[in-house]
């Protein structure tokens, strides 16, 4: 990743699009504080002194324990973050999951993502970072995930290839290419920006 200059307002919904390997995942990891930038800095004026507490990340690895059930996963993370574990059943219902005994290892890709979103809803982060929330999903899963993302309380940054599904959830969008921001605009123009990039590269 090379040059990114970006500001995100509280409660803003931002969509990041761009071709594979353009730096979307790296950017999210840097924003999450898990990856330290080799140059430059990230500041979180709206968040607490230790911003980690207020940041939620759903990466390619969604952040769960494979051997535990969905409810146990939420219970474990609630206990670790000092959150009231009571409304777990309701949380799971919000994302369309049942509180069964089944281990998460047996879940489909869509169910896993919905569980990860339930964990984010539980943690109520001021900044939620979602990496490809619609990957490997059937239409039902996409609807469930969209609903859960809408329910997130704070600012949300979504990196996604599925512009048609992600754009309605966002207000602003940026297009990244080769580690740089090539375009910033309204989310409903994202698809047009995507086409423009393809056109420039002579792929369409």
């Amino acid at each position: 990743m090379a040059r990114v200059d970006l500001e995100v307002a509280a409660h803003e919904r931002l969509l990041i699009i761009g071709p594979n390997g353009c730096g979307k995942t790296t950017l999210l990891n840097v924003l999450s504080t898990l990856l330290r930038p080799s140059a430059g800095s990230v500041s979180y004026p709206g968040l607490a002194k230790n911003p980690r507490k207020d940041i939620g990340l759903m990466g390619h690895d969604i952040g769960i324990y494979e051997d535990l059930s969905a409810a146990d996963n939420l219970r474990v993370f609630a206990r670790m973050s000092d959150i009231d574990p009571a409304p777990i059943r309701a949380l799971l219902a919000t994302v369309g999951l049942e509180a069964g005994d089944q281990a998460v290892a047996k879940y489909s890709a869509g169910m896993r993502r919905r569980l990860a979103l339930a964990a984010l809803l539980q943690a109520q982060p001021a900044l939620a970072l979602l990496d490809e929330p619609f990957a490997q999903m059937d239409p039902g899963g996409i609807a469930g995930v969209s609903k859960a993302i809408k329910a997130l309380p704070g600012a949300v940054i979504i990196a996604s290839h599925q512009v048609q599904h992600a754009a309605p959830l966002a207000t602003r969008a940026i297009l990244m290419d080769c580690g740089q921001i090539r375009w910033t605009g309204r989310a409903d123009q994202a698809e047009a920006a995507w086409r423009a990039l393809h056109h420039e590269r002579g792929e369409l």
Partner: peptide
């Protein structure tokens, strides 16, 4: 492996643990 296979460790780090 149970901590890293599905990214649980990243989640713990963000608690922050």
């Amino acid at each position: 492996r149970i901590e890293v296979e599905a990214g649980a460790l990243s989640k713990l780090l963000l608690i922050p643990i």
